[in-house]
């Protein structure tokens, strides 16, 4: 495949501009939560990266400033659902009911995920095909293999 990784990379939002949201103080916990759910449902590593990419972009897109931590967890769960549907085999996608058994999501209604899912999809403009660090890693590894066969000089890689 002729995937232009650098081009895909540029489409990501730039993190340089000033932006503050309580989200960033929760982010570490949210990543751990997403990773935990992924391992519980035996999902791929790539799915975690997709989910976090969607959540980061969504929070930025709607300029979410809420300090209600559990709301971010609901959006994280919805991002994860979207990522799983996009990447995983359909029968590996977790059920909403199963997700709500998790302690982080206690007290929320099932319909929250469906409506959050739609909010995220809209917020992202239905753009789910993004290049994550997993893809970058893969591209770097293959470049590395290329250089050992002396087809590419060090200059080419940089």
């Amino acid at each position: 495949m002729f995937v232009d990784v650098d081009c895909a990379r540029k489409q990501e939002f730039d993190s340089s501009s000033e932006y503050s949201s309580p989200y960033f103080s929760y982010r570490r916990e949210i990543v751990q939560f997403v990773a935990k759910v992924c391992s519980k449902f035996k999902l791929k590593t790539l799915t975690i990266h997709y989910a976090m990419n969607y959540l980061d972009r969504f929070v930025r897109a709607i300029n979410m400033k809420s300090s209600d931590k559990s709301r971010y967890f609901v959006f994280a769960a919805a991002s994860l659902m979207i990522a799983a549907k996009f990447e995983e085999r359909p029968d590996h996608v977790p059920y909403v009911q199963e997700l709500f058994l998790l302690p982080e999501l206690r007290g929320f209604d099932h319909s929250e995920v469906s409506s959050s899912e739609l909010m995220i999809l809209k917020g992202l403009g239905w753009k789910l095909h993004v290049c994550t660090y997993v893809h970058m890693l893969d591209s770097h590894i293959s470049t590395g293999i290329c250089s050992t066969t002396e087809e590419a000089s060090v200059d080419d890689i940089s």
Partner: peptide, 11 residues
């Protein structure tokens, strides 16, 4: 069903 937004249409 209860997987939220249908997988195939999402893709």
């Amino acid at each position: 069903a209860d997987q939220g937004f249908p997988v195939r249409y999402l893709r």
